[in-house]
Design a binder for these strands. Sequence first.
RNA 1: GCGCCGAUAGUGUAGCGGUUAUCACUAGGCGUUGCCAACGCCUAAACUCGGGUUCGAAUCCCGAUCGGCGCACCA
Length: 581
Amino acid sequence: MDKNEKINELARRRGFLWPAFELYGGAAGFFDYGPLGAPLKRRIEDIWRQYFVIQEGFAEIEAPTIGVEGIYQASGHLSGFSDPLTGCKECKEVYRADHLIKHIVEVPDALSNEEIYKTIQENEIGCPECGGQLTEVYEFNLMFKTMIGPGNKMTGYMRPETAQGMFINFPRLLRYFRDSLPFAAVQIGKSYRNEISPRQGVIRLREFTQAEAEIFIDPRDKTHPRFGEIRDIRMKFYSQAAQEKGVEEEMTFGEAVERGVVAHQALAYYVARTYQFLLAIGVAPDKLRFRQHKADEMAHYAADCWDAEVFLDRLGWIEIVGVADRTDYDLKAHAATSKVNLSVFVHYDQPVKRQKLVVKPDFKSLGPRFKGKAKAVGEALKALSPEELKGDMIRLTVDGEPIEIEPTLVSFESVEEEIRGEEVIPHVIEPSFGIDRILYTVLDHSYYEDAVDGESRAVLKFLPAVAPIEVAVLPLMDRKELVGPARAIVDELRRLGLRVDYDTSGSIGRRYRRNDEIGTPYDVTVDYETIEQGTVTIRDRDTMLQIKVPLAQVANTLQALLCGTIKFEAAGTILSPAKEA
RNA sequence: GCGCCGAUAGUGUAGCGGUUAUCACUAGGCGUUGCCAACGCCUAAACUCGGGUUCGAAUCCCGAUCGGCGCACCA
């Protein structure tokens, strides 16, 4: 069994990840989070909230997972997320139908499936592999489609990303943030993609959890006020240039921005925050890199894009986060489709003064003369320059009809105008996290085996902040005099909100192993000294060292250990290492 | 979607046309046990599903589902 298989087997056996619908034969691309997986996922999400909601002051919202058609017309998912496919009747190979007629039709995207098929037939296009006949063109859209309400009145789609929920709430969010930039909204939730062939467990799912932030910034100012906090962090950058050489480049974020490796401070800041977050949940720094999208890989509207990639045993480098400057693409698209202005009025520091020509047509005279056309004539006059308004006679054309007007019927003057600001469409920085992949990474990067007395020991070295079980309370033996005090400790710790497991079955060593395997950081053992001297031992998962702590301090000590405010060796009296078996 | 390979207790497995379906670990119970997967006894637990061939199928054939790998796909 390789490491990947071991982790999957452990995850299944101990209740982290289960293939969904097993009772009914299962379905590819769906997973259940079990009793340990669900809290692990929840804790990872909560740390994400710490980093991207609480510490940044962003707003978390929750939009429906089903969306109406308009959203995905605007976002491009309806057309771009769907591919016309055709297959070979002979060798069964499947092709993108539009790709096959690229050299014949200039814009295959504009054709319907029937038209593409007609083109294929008319040009006698066969299978590129074997020359066989091709099937009719059919649509494969990666979005799950559903009906809203009875009948076919309204089509709904399961959202393929959480991002759109933030974009379409832009006007409400803007008001919530008192009409000023920058601001940001985030969502953590499920997204759905009907993948053609999902594989590799939780790496490619049909239903998955995303955590996304949409940070709306002033396009003219892509600095970041808190850039100083991350300027000196050193990290490996796998830039476009570095990828050509095949070697990552280590530098500080300050250097990265100064040298133009990362487009600007705002993007660099969120790359750095992403880096900090990933380390905080236990992603191994030596198996983590940030890779810049190559020019041809980047969406056409994106200004710059960096992916966090992790090295996973057997799977290689896998993308787990994308941080992109999406410019004003999304807001412009929604503005165009919904016909709602999605710009922000940005006030200048100082109003700008400007000369402006004000033209006032004499409607009292123009009205009777031009009747219904008067308004159009007035508009045409307003568009003229001072030179054109002077002359003996003003000449203009309205609805193709030449018109002459005496200059006395128009007055105009140049006035000084104060401009206090302008309308801008914000640019969007989007960090987008695949939570399921991140959780798997934490499992992969936490797993190790060591040898204890010649026996192999499997350990998940979860950081206390993500561990699904934080403390196991274990009576040395299942005897009344030990069980009583042990239960009292369990109750106390649970009252304090700790995730506590209690186990009396089997030998003490067996129970230590069980807890090592699910990543419990600390085991509290109740023994006869608990009764005689009022102490318990606390065992550290990774070193297997034990300290002796007075009963009254157990809770405090554990809380301090879990928060990392004290070192294990300093938390109590160290006992000699476990005796040889 | 295509091709190749696979699917047996919770986990890992044996099985090659007739077995009470093998073994180990695991899990539960009782006893024992003074700190790193101890021991004894007991218990629970499986042939992925649907067809077919055959007197008889876990075993052979077909199909589906799921999984692994390669190809294609992955805004």
